[in-house]
Write a protein that binds this DNA or RNA. Structure first.
Lengths: 224, 224, 224, 224
DNA sequence: CATGAATGAGTTTTCATTCAT
DNA sequence: GATGAATGAAAACTCATTCAT
């Protein structure tokens, strides 16, 4: 390094040193950096929103140089898309677990609702990105096929189809519309929970909301 | 100062008050200009998304100079917020009509669903802005109370409360959670319809979806 | 000096104030700004080279804001191309004058040589840009047809054709190859003159070089 | 420090000396690497232009790692300068051959022209770099003496001086100006040939151009 | 010697906003 | 009120260069 204007390189060492400790653990050096960037991106996107988030913020939060992000992702857009793919995969895994664990369609649907909201509760930032930012940019909704979300809908619809086949569920409802409606409801509840300010009065209790959403979608609102 | 470090959202009142002074004069050409700008903004926001929309595009679409927009709205953010307020008011009027027209709670809810999706079908751009951009505006929501949306939820919840009082609806469901869930489902269905590319296969028929959504929320999915 | 610490952008006000004084003079406000940017670009490109020139340098030299340049030119590339077109037009005007003034082909060619080198001498920066930067970027040579330069060649070739028709010039030489060769020689002499450091020994005298170049191209090097 | 504010060109000697140590060992694989990098650089500079060429492209084309280039060359600038030195040496060898082979000055000059254009035809990429980038490198020339090009001029001028001494060539023409003019003409013709797109109509035939250029510089354009 | 992942300074370009007319 | 030319801050992204392995 030339002396000229030894701009402070040193500012980033601290973080990097920390990162390098990881080398002790068995299997992460290459993938570790990608993952750290994704983690950082979730935090920053959740806090600032996609458009207001600066790549340099993400880099700083990840403890890497700005340019490093571009070694792993083509662009800021690409970073968001990869985030979705990665995290949606977890949502889908959740879903599959629900389906596999339970045998009756009704139990499956109740469990899906519960697990989804638990996931939201336990991964606030991730939920924020998925609920808020996924929808945000028509760019990502339209120009990007979003296969993981399609899988989400398909899985739910599949459970409904099966329930209809066995006679457990009634047949008048289109499974695909149901899946959309359920996701919309879950997402809106999640959003309500996310958005509520710390000091807000009208707090939504996610476990209770899960209970109620299960009741509502299974039994409807009508008195009997 | 430029807005580039725009931390502060909202604060939209002052200028609008000024704009509204014109309401005093009978044949309101200036108010016509405000309206033209809002119309243009809907089109442009729907087509480009809020962040990708350029103020000059909106100005051009409205047939005014760029600077003129700032005579009616404090900022681009403020324009979006005003858009919501204005258009949400229509959604709420829709809602009130449904409530007033029908007497039974169930009929009210079915009508709400139907009217909402009809509104979407007939005002595609406006629906796009509300469904897609409102979400993104949860960023806004944090700093901006969004009273019109609150009113939306309150109206639905009110209908449910009334239905529960008369015994027409069962009491286990929290009216506020129901309102959220219903809005989420409606919004998601609207989005699915909006997003479907011209050549897409899985077309959603909005009237049919309204029917099904009504059934689902009233009677549930369970076979009887 | 490096621009390393170029933190302070704001220092540009002084210049702008100066620029605005111009408004007093009769006929320049709109075109004046474009011209000022071109003038500034010539200076900066000549001093730094196209690739090393910063748009902000040009803006500063022109006494306008960075963004203003983009109101008149699509990009930095576009600015260079416009510069060529504009200035080459002067070169061509020069040429046409030579052709029109003189009647014999030989006198025309001698005059072209003389005028061209005089132009170089009197417009050092412009010559630099044309000689050095025109060639520089294959981008501009290949992807851009350069009609003004084509015109230059055509004009010279035309004079030769005419001289050959009248029998004043011999016919063995292809007029287009001649035009190229003459331009190359002129350009190289210009470059030699431009590049010579202030304190260099081997100074080229442009008027003398013009004389010699005329002799060379008309009579050749062979003794008779 | 990064080179971004790279004011200082040249300074290219140190490292190269190191590289040349390897000449001691008989089967020079490391020197082979230097040569491979130069070959690759020619291709890439010719195809992209100096400023648009990326060091990593060159590294890839040479089959070495990016960092390896910096073991042989101090910087990207240094690489270009070394390229000139190396390849210009061939041009000069060409020249000397012409001088030595022929005895009369006129024959020497004709042969120089012919050999030069043959060289261009047979080493297209190298010609491109020299013709196009050398010009741009007049930027370099200012800080870098370009001794090989100086040698080129000196050789030609020497031949002229000798011809003038013997009375074969007339004495009115300054040998140095002649050398410049000849080089300029050759270079321009080379450029015209290089730039002509594959499908272009006005194709220049290099052998024919050589013939004509010889005639022109020896006998002039005037009819006799 | 060789590697190539990581760095981070630097630059073009955009566009919300202003303000002189 | 209306205009729209001008502003200039901001940020994504690039890429020559370094250096730990």
């Amino acid at each position: 390094m030339n002396n000229h204007s030894a701009r402070s390189r040193s500012k980033s060492n601290g973080k990097r040193a920390v990162a390098k400790k990881k080398d002790a653990s068995p299997a992460s050096p290459p993938e570790g950096k990608r993952e750290r960037i994704l983690e950082a991106a979730i935090k920053v996107f959740a806090a600032e929103g996609f458009y207001n988030a600066k790549v340099s913020q993400i880099a700083q939060a990840a403890g890497v140089a700005d340019g490093t992000i571009y070694l792993y992702f083509k662009s800021k857009d690409d970073l968001l898309i990869n985030l979705f793919e990665d995290r949606m995969e977890r949502v889908n895994a959740n879903l599959r677990e629900a389906i596999e664990t339970e045998t009756s369609a009704i139990a499956q649907l109740r469990r899906i609702v519960r697990l989804h909201l638990e996931l939201v509760e336990q991964n606030r930032d991730m939920a924020e990105v998925i609920s808020v930012e996924l929808r945000q940019s028509s760019k990502f909704i339209r120009e990007y096929a979003n296969p993981k979300f399609a899988e989400f809908l398909r899985t739910i619809a599949g459970a409904v189809v099966e329930g209809q086949r066995t006679g457990e569920l009634r047949t008048g409802i289109d499974p695909y519309i149901f899946a959309r409606a359920l996701f919309g409801a879950l997402d809106e509840i999640a959003l309500a929970w996310l958005v509520k300010q710390p000091g807000s009065k009208a707090t939504i209790e996610l476990p209770r909301a899960a209970e109620q959403l299960g009741d509502l979608f299974i039994d409807g609102l009508k008195a009997r």
